[in-house]
Design a protein around this nucleic acid. Structure first.
Lengths: 155, 155
DNA sequence: TGGGAGAACATGGGCGTCAATGGAATCGAG
DNA sequence: CTCGATTCCATTGACGCCCATGTTCTCCCA
């Protein structure tokens, strides 16, 4: 499997370390990136994580802008400056830095959420709330899609 | 790793020396440039720093303008004339010259901000303000891009 | 079909190494 | 000889690596 799928919740130990779920580890291995690339999300209190494929996405986005342009600087400050490359220990764990824990409101447990080419790291409670919210939005979206096909615009 | 990633804050000692963060040092090493190339940013109270890749970008940027044109002269005066090449001591430290400290308002701590092919040097407080601003601008920017693919956020 | 052996994985903690920092020693130029 | 700059050394604290433990899941066999 080359995509991050499913959701896992693990505990941090006294040193702030947490095991990356084994299925995610094997995806990372295959991806080839040494370490775990982590980038805070802009709109949620969560963190995007992954390997080369995630970095590639970020690089592609930056490539849309001219170096030294204001937009390029803003993006690189936000996307790259706030990112961290975490070392994965021989047991498959990472130590979450303070900045990340603070951003995501993480205490002693974290939830890993697979999202294909990347996964997210959440504080479990916050993730449940977000997921519930997301579900509602999707229901609504589906209603709209349904209407479109049947009536050509039941709105 | 061949890119400057993440943010670090270090202290200056009584001689005005400061350690370049170890991950940045290894990028510089790989880049091959002897020393640290520093040039004041155009529109911020900060300093761009890096090695050959940064110099290459500056060269490329200047190449966008007609040689001997007024714009070209202005840019080269600022970008090249105000640049400094700092020597890195055996422990991986540099001594920040007065001109740079003045321009960036640096006191006894500095923040290093990775931006891919280069990194920036900031006075910590000023950087926090800039980062907050940058985050807002990027959010806004992303909204405008709309349907475009993105790397930094959840969808 | 139930039980047991084994493997894989999450977790806990001890120890060595390296990076950041401070300060002393040395070198070079005026 | 003195001042400034550069190199050398020493300390401390964080972090990476190693080994140990327990739990769950799987697979095999009775």
């Amino acid at each position: 499997m080359d995509e991050f799928v499913s959701t896992f919740t693990n505990r941090l130990d006294s040193k702030g370390r947490v095991s990356i779920p084994a299925p995610f580890r094997s995806v990372l291995m295959r991806d080839g990136f040494e370490g775990l690339y982590c980038c805070p999300t802009l709109d949620q209190n969560a963190v995007d994580a992954g390997g080369n494929r995630l970095r590639e996405q970020i690089r592609a986005m930056l490539a849309l802008f001219e170096p030294f342009s204001e937009d390029h600087e803003l993006l690189s400050t936000t996307l790259i400056g706030e990112s961290e490359i975490l070392r994965v220990d021989p047991e498959g764990r990472v130590a979450l830095p303070e900045a990340i824990k603070a951003h995501a409101g993480i205490g002693d447990t974290v939830t890993f959420v697979g999202q294909g080419y990347k996964f997210q790291i959440w504080e479990p409670e916050r993730f449940l709330a977000y997921r519930a919210e997301a579900k509602n939005r999707v229901r609504e979206l589906r209603r709209r899609l349904g209407g479109r096909r049947e009536a050509g615009g039941a709105e």
